[in-house]
Design a protein around this nucleic acid. Structure first.
Length: 230
DNA sequence: GCGACAG
DNA sequence: ATCTTGTCGC
């Protein structure tokens, strides 16, 4: 194996110490691998997203497993856990990861590639929720966010597939990708065991008629309560 | 000191 | 994220 140094505690109980949480992110970010290390092409994909109930007291996470070729869902699960921490920009993963891991455990098999709603390395310390999820589980992951957290980018062209690099402190940390005409671009960034070009390539492969790629779109519907049966 | 700020 | 109806546009 190639385990490398053991992982620092990924989810310490929240005690309000923002500085300590940030320091842990810097430590975990060192474990992120930005090279494509997943089955190519992948056979199964998984999409993850989080929502809240009871005025935020309960965190609800959705996990959807899909066939990579047909993009059809194979399994869908929802996990509910008590919310332990408030939302703090830059520390999102500490708040949402517990629920996501619970949802992941419900899948009957491990996916070849994971898509998480939120950023990968397009984060102040390069550890957005998708990257944290990847390092914590060892699974290849990609971050698909609807808005920028850090960095700047030019307006991408109007055609699906047009992209503009997201830059931060001289680094290309992601891409603003036009996934659908007349819609704000998605911010795609590598999570773990995926390169930036690889992340964009895989997201493009999952686009149909909507703004979000299928894995994240399906998880989004389950997590956000507007999953009107059928 | 004044904004910005994933979900 | 969530609170919320109808409405403008393709």
């Amino acid at each position: 194996m190639n385990a490398g140094p053991p992982l620092p505690p990924a989810l310490p109980d929240w005690n309000g110490d923002v500085a300590a949480a940030r320091a842990l992110q810097v430590e975990l970010a060192r474990r992120v691998v930005l090279a494509d290390a997943f089955p190519r092409p992948p056979r199964t994909l998984a999409g993850f997203d989080v929502g809240f109930e009871d005025g935020g007291a309960t965190t609800r996470a959705a996990a959807v497993l899909l066939d990579a070729d047909s993009l059809q869902p194979l399994e869908a699960h929802v996990a509910r856990v008590p919310t332990r921490m408030p939302y703090i920009p830059g520390l999102l993963s500490f708040r949402e990861l517990p629920a996501l891991l619970d949802a992941l455990a419900r899948l009957s098999r491990a996916p070849d590639l994971v898509f998480v709603d939120g950023h990968g390395i397009a984060h102040p310390r390069r550890l957005g929720i998708a990257a944290h999820f990847g390092v914590a589980t060892g699974l290849p992951s990609i971050g698909v966010a609807k808005r920028v957290l850090v960095g700047e980018h030019a307006e991408p062209g109007p055609v699906r597939g047009d992209a503009a690099p997201l830059l931060h402190r001289g680094e290309a940390i992601g891409v603003a990708l036009r996934s659908k005409p007349r819609c704000r671009p998605l911010i795609v960034s590598p999570g773990h065991r995926v390169s930036l070009p690889g992340a964009v390539e895989q997201v493009l492969r999952c686009l149909t008629r909507y703004r979000l790629p299928e894995p994240t779109r399906l998880a989004d519907r389950l997590a956000s309560r507007r999953d009107r049966g059928a």
